[in-house]
């Protein structure tokens, strides 16, 4: 498979695991709307290390998907616009490169799988065609070679009788199969970073388990990094190495999966865990986070969680907390003024 190795020549040296592959620095992606400016992503910071899975968790509207779309330059502009920050991929700021360079990276070095495989696949092309498109574009394979490659990819993602399936259309496949095809497409050029936006949310649990296993298997074999965006804390616990918790356009807590699940510190993260019916004994009332997520047009001043936070004080309204090192766990950062009190929650 000489084609696979030669094509990566342009992107520089392979990272050793543990090195920073992608760094998002103070990213701000805003949208112009009827009611003013929606600050969907407003100062997000995180890094993805080579070979690891970073889980981004948060509820609808927290900006987790917009961050991912920003990385690939897929945010529709207008109404969206970049209001600051950097996205460094192997040191190259993706917000500054031109569309041609971005196209080189997209699908080749960084690829993405989406939540809804039916809408993300093109219904008028066979699945084989859709996989072939990326390798023909990025790796200059001819049609025959690409077709063979597509069959190999389908086999890799566990689709039975791939020689037949390669010529079928998306509607002939089940939901789980479609998601496998999406993964095959995303993996076709052996990317270094796979962005998976709610990859299993539309799937049944038994199928979800198969797909998650497939992703982590491929990850181990190919040594790629995964940016996993999900609202499902169970999925994150089972697959991520590090976790970033987002609320209202910001990361409020970041740490290793053991730290975040073992000893969450931000009142929002704590509240999120307390709301999980998995962890509550039957008959005991679930504790909840009062109120609803504020609108991106009207985030509160200071700490954005203060309107729902049991610990909020005047200081929270005046000064916005930043991510600071906390506790004895290396790499654990939290944005909160009341961490001592939060330990008692």
């Amino acid at each position: 498979m000489s084609t696979e190795t030669q094509s990566k020549g342009s992107s520089g040296a392979e990272e050793k695991s543990g090195e920073v592959l992608l760094q998002v620095k103070d990213l701000r992606t805003h949208f112009r709307g009827d009611e003013g400016i929606a600050k969907a992503v407003d100062g997000v910071n995180y890094s993805v290390l080579a070979g690891e899975t970073l889980g981004i968790v948060g509820e609808s509207g927290c900006g987790k998907s917009v961050t991912a779309l920003s990385i690939l330059g897929l945010v529709p502009m207008p109404p969206g616009f970049n209001a600051g920050g950097e996205i460094l991929f192997r040191g190259e700021n993706l917000l500054e490169v031109d569309e041609r360079r971005l196209r080189e990276i997209r699908g080749n070095d960084i690829s993405m799988i989406f939540q809804e495989p039916m809408t993300a696949l093109n219904p008028v092309f066979t699945v084989g065609n859709q996989i072939m498109e990326t390798v023909m574009l990025h790796q200059g394979m001819d049609k025959m070679a690409a077709h063979q490659h597509a069959i190999r990819m389908l086999e890799k993602v566990g689709i039975p009788s791939p020689e037949q399936r390669v010529d079928e259309y998306p509607h002939q496949l089940s939901g789980g199969m479609r998601q496998r095809v999406m993964i095959a497409m995303a993996m076709a050029c052996s990317p270094s970073l796979l962005i998976a936006d709610e990859p299993t949310t539309a799937l049944d649990v038994t199928i979800q388990a198969q797909v998650l296993e497939l992703i982590s298997e491929l990850q181990k074999r190919e040594g790629m990094s995964v940016l996993l965006i999900t609202h499902d804390l169970g999925v994150v616990a089972q697959t991520a190495d590090h976790v970033a918790v987002m609320y209202a356009g910001k990361v409020v807590e970041y740490g290793s999966v053991e730290t975040i699940f073992g000893k969450p510190c931000h009142p929002y993260t704590i509240g999120l865990f307390h709301s999980l019916p998995d962890l509550a004994p039957p008959g005991v009332r679930l504790s909840t986070i009062e109120g609803i997520v504020p609108s991106a047009f009207r985030f509160p001043s200071g700490c954005r969680f203060r309107t729902r936070c049991p610990l909020a004080s005047d200081r929270c309204a005046e000064i916005e907390p930043t991510l600071e090192r906390f506790g004895d766990q290396a790499g654990h950062t939290v944005a909160c003024h009341h961490l001592e009190e939060a330990e008692k929650l």
Partner: peptide, 9 residues
């Protein structure tokens, strides 16, 4: 067994 539990341990 397929339900992912929110416990990394």
């Amino acid at each position: 067994s397929a339900v992912p539990r929110p416990d990394p341990k």
